[in-house]
Amino acid sequence: MNDAPPNDAPAAGDNLPPPGRVTLIQIFSAFLLIGATSVGGGVVAYLRSSLVVKHRWIDDPTFVQMLSISQTLPGLNATNMAILVGDRLRGVPGALVAIVAICLPGGLIMFQVGMAYGLHSEKPFVTAMFQGIAAAAVGLVLAVTVQLGQKSLKYRDDLIFVALTVIGVNVFHLSVLYVLLGVGAFAVWWRRPRPDQKEPLL
């Protein structure tokens, strides 16, 4: 996930189409293409190269701001971005078209997988293959976690909240909802607005 802006990206306010000029069909095809080609995660990089670089529908500062909203709110980055960009370009219909298009290819594939799985899952050869896939996927989710941590943990005491969350879910087996609300509220309170007080950066 390389989000560093190359030189061909438009600068702020540089010849972007005014809202309403992009058609729903254009939005649909752009997000369908992202939904069909973003294999192997890193959908953020695909979004940026399509929306910012290729189509010039939004500029980099807007993209970064939308991404930070997407990451803070519940929901996947890919679908949250689709809604924010779609809304920006064409309001409610734009947001709907964008989220449907980005989900469609992967959804159809996984639907097929669900059907095929029912037919073949009893075969030991298939199970053995799935065990290899699952082991590799564990490596992937751990790598994604490490990368997210490197990007979004800014303060030393952030580690306290990471630890509290993991202990709540994995040791005490509390519901994710309670951990999210409890530790989340504590962490937000910890970072509450205080006049001119800066935490030391890592």
Partner: peptide, 23 residues
């Protein structure tokens, strides 16, 4: 900003917790 900075480590923790339970 408090919400954004506060939720960042919690989301990392939740992803880590999910990865651990899958592992």
């Amino acid at each position: 900003d408090a919400i954004q900075h506060g939720l960042a480590p919690v989301s990392v923790g939740l992803i880590l917790a999910g990865s651990i339970s899958m592992a």
